[in-house]
Design a protein around this nucleic acid. Structure first.
Lengths: 234, 234
DNA sequence: CCCAAAAATTAACTTATGTTAGAGAACGCT
DNA sequence: AGCGTTCTCTAACATAAGTTAATTTTTGGG
């Protein structure tokens, strides 16, 4: 079985983890786990304090409203950190797997201890969180200031970029196991309207999203309609 | 003049900074600055790498789209950190003062050096970023899944809570120098519609926002229409 | 290979929010 | 105190996106 050390060493993504980050703690308390597709890894409002680092697979991080609606906050991908909070307290969001999902788990307390004794780790985590910040800020732009078409285009380009940086996309093609319903939840719109929008994007020969597969057809036009600049993902 | 040390020590907000955080670095390279109202502190796409910690005053952190529209990402308040990036590169957002704004500035490189040598600082920054993440995630909920009325209600309650935690609000009242135009940019809607919405909130005796002053009138009903739970701000 | 369930698609209709335009109110100079 | 500028507020109208509902297609288990 691959250790967190090996994983982090071989996938310098999300926060560019490296061996030195963990100093002499030697990964005490880190557990590797595999979840089945469509299982709930942790629930909003729960009081356990585990933090997850995605090893492989697709997941959804989401928050529910009182009326039963939910908004997907992010789709954590390989190397991303999930569940780090500034203070003790219940979880702010739920995490569910879409595909089979492999993660490393570590308790919040252990991680904080490790950060305190090893400056490099603190830097790594801070950088990873700063990147997540940038992604969330861009999603906020999407939700607030872009229409359905450019919003959808923008997110499909973001996914391509993020997947490509971890070796899961090439030549404008990638596998995306999200249903239209899930994608609509991410983009803060209705399934029906997303479907209309995907149709338009296809008809305009910009991107095609069918059967779990995304294909960028006319990148130049797509980037333009999306108003996409990948800088925020660096 | 107050030093960053003293400030951070006396305002354990945002990331609960404390004296030890800075170890033996003794705040080298930290500058205190004061900006006039309505000045631009830093610009999106600029290449300087300064990081700001807000000491007092109101500011807007925003990102512009190509078509000239902008989305306000956050309103950094006392104790908040602005501008930390995961990698070198141009700024992702602009920062502008609304009122007179006092900040501490430190170069990104210096801050990273300090983090590397002092674990506590890394923890502090990471926690502060985690809190900002939670705030952005909640704004995303707002933009994606709440209508104009609950969105507005939610943000006014958030401001109250954040200001209250730094001693700038009490008894459901606080000063808020934002114009309706700025508030609309934050909430991702038009000035006209925000105006309508504020009118409704006033007529329903939930909150009143007039002349730079906010007053919560019926908290219980307001919290309910907003679907507000302050946990994410802790 | 078939069937049930889930996902995608389309259509008709409704509604929340955007747009444009203008008038009144407040603010900040000089 | 006056005057221009920036805010606030309203109204009439336009439209993107939501709702409901039904049909077709795909998927996965037995």
């Amino acid at each position: 079985m691959q250790t967190l050390l090996q994983f982090i060493h071989s996938h310098p993504v999300g926060g560019t983890f490296s061996k030195d980050d963990w100093g002499n703690n030697d990964f005490l308390g880190v557990t590797a786990r595999i979840y089945k597709p469509h299982s709930v890894i942790c629930r909003q409002d729960d009081n356990n304090d585990g933090i997850f680092i995605v090893k492989s697979g697709w997941a959804l991080l989401y928050r529910g409203l009182l009326d039963g609606e939910r908004q997907i906050i992010d789709t954590p991908l390989r190397g991303d950190i999930v569940g780090f909070r500034s203070v003790d307290g219940p979880r702010l969001a739920s995490l569910a797997s879409i595909t089979e999902l492999a993660v490393y788990e570590i308790s919040s307390k252990k991680l904080v201890e490790a950060i305190l004794s090893e400056g490099r780790l603190g830097k790594t985590i801070a950088c990873s969180l700063a990147r997540l910040n940038a992604i969330l800020a861009e999603h906020l732009m999407n939700a607030g200031r872009r229409n359905a078409m450019s919003r959808t285009a923008h997110f499909l380009l973001e996914l391509e970029e993020r997947l490509s940086s971890v070796g899961l996309s090439a030549h404008g093609r990638y596998e995306c196991p999200l249903t239209q319903h899930e994608l609509a939840d991410i983009l803060g719109m209705t399934t029906v309207h997303l479907n209309r929008t995907l149709g338009e994007l296809r008809k305009a020969d910009l991107v095609a999203f069918r059967a779990g597969h995304v294909e960028v057809i006319n990148r130049k036009k797509l980037v333009k309609t999306a108003g996409f600049d990948s800088e925020y993902l660096r």
